[in-house]
C-alpha cells in the first residue's frame, strides 16, 4: 500500500491541493507554493496539461515535489495526450522516480484548450487506463506480458457528481471501481447539497470520495471554505481537493482556511 492509500485509510479525512506545472521551464514558483502549503495538506495533485492547455509535463514537478515536500504527490495523467505505450511508460517512470499515486483521467477535449488543432489520442478511456495501471501494479502489461519488477501504485479517478443525467455516470463509476480505482476526486462542486444528492442517488461507492472545492479568486475563498466545512461536518466525503484556477495566492489562502 502506498503511503497515500495508507493515509486515506488511517486518517479518515484527507486534504489535497492542485498544482499546475508552469508554461515554461522555471519550476521555482510551483516549488515555492508547494513549500508554503505542503505541510498543511496530505497530498499535492499535479495536473496534466490542465484544460488541454500546454504546460510542462507533470512528471518532472511530481518528482521534484516527492523529493522535497513532506506531503504525498499524486500525478495526473490524461488519456488525451498518450497512447497505451506512453501511458504505461510514464506510469513506470513515475513509480521509478518515487511517484506512486496516480489520478487517471480522460482529459478535457483538445477543442477546449490552446491547441484545438491537435489530434487527441484517447487510445484508452479512463476505465481502460485504470485497467492498464492496475495490471502494471500486478506485474504485467495489458497483454498479460510480465514486467521486470512491478510498481506499487495507488490509483484514483475522477467523479462528476453533478453531471446529469446521472445514470450513465454511475455506469462509468462502477467500471472505474472494478478496474481498480482506489479513490475518487470529484470535479469542483457547486455546494454540499450537490454531493448529498449524488450520494443519495449513487449509494455506496466502496471507495473514498475526495470532494472538489474550488475558489476562483481571493474573494471566493470564504465561500469555498464554508462549503468545505459543511462537507466535512456533514460527513459527505472522506477528503477535500482544493483548487484555485491556477492562482497561487488564492490556493494558499484556501489551504490556509481548509488545510490541516
Amino acid at each position: 500500500m502506498t503511503s497515500f492509500a495508507q493515509a486515506i485509510k488511517d486518517k479518515g479525512f484527507v486534504v489535497t491541493a492542485e498544482l499546475d506545472p508552469p508554461r515554461g521551464v522555471d519550476l521555482g514558483p510551483l516549488m515555492a507554493l508547494a513549500g508554503r502549503i505542503g505541510a498543511k495538506v496530505d497530498a499535492l495533485v499535479v495536473s496534466d496539461n490542465q484544460g488541454a492547455n500546454l504546460r510542462q509535463a507533470p512528471w518532472w514537478a511530481a518528482h521534484r515535489l516527492a523529493e522535497t515536500i513532506p506531503a504525498e504527490v499524486i500525478l495526473t495523467l490524461t488519456c488525451r495526450d498518450r497512447n497505451r505505450l506512453s501511458l504505461g511508460g510514464d506510469i513506470l517512470a513515475a513509480a521509478a522516480s518515487g511517484v506512486d499515486n496516480l489520478l487517471l483521467v480522460s482529459g478535457d477535449f483538445v477543442s477546449l484548450g490552446d491547441h484545438p488543432q491537435a489530434k487527441p489520442v484517447y487510445d484508452l478511456d479512463s476505465v481502460q487506463a485504470l485497467m492498464l495501471a492496475n495490471g502494471l501494479a500486478q506485474g504485467h502489461d495489458l497483454n498479460g506480458q510480465e514486467l521486470a519488477g512491478a510498481p506499487e501504485l495507488c490509483l484514483g479517478a475522477v467523479l462528476a457528481p453533478e453531471a446529469r443525467p446521472l445514470a450513465p455516470q454511475l455506469v462509468k463509476l462502477r467500471k472505474k471501481r472494478a478496474a481498480g480505482a482506489g479513490f475518487f476526486i470529484t470535479r469542483p462542486l457547486s455546494g454540499p447539497d450537490a454531493l448529498k444528492t449524488f450520494l443519495q442517488e449513487a449509494g455506496e461507492l466502496g471507495a473514498p470520495i475526495i470532494a472538489g472545492v474550488q475558489a476562483k479568486n481571493p474573494e471566493g475563498v470564504a465561500a469555498a471554505a464554508e462549503m468545505a466545512k459543511a462537507i466535512r461536518a456533514g460527513g459527505l466525503a472522506q477528503g477535500l481537493h482544493l483548487s484555485a484556477s491556477g492562482d497561487p495566492e488564492t490556493l494558499a489562502s484556501l489551504v490556509e482556511a481548509c488545510g490541516r
Partner: peptide
C-alpha cells in the same frame, strides 16, 4: 469526440 467506450467522460453538461 473522445471515443469513450465504457461510459461518459465527466464533462457532459
Amino acid at each position: 469526440p473522445k471515443g469513450m467506450v465504457n461510459g461518459p467522460c465527466g464533462g457532459a453538461v
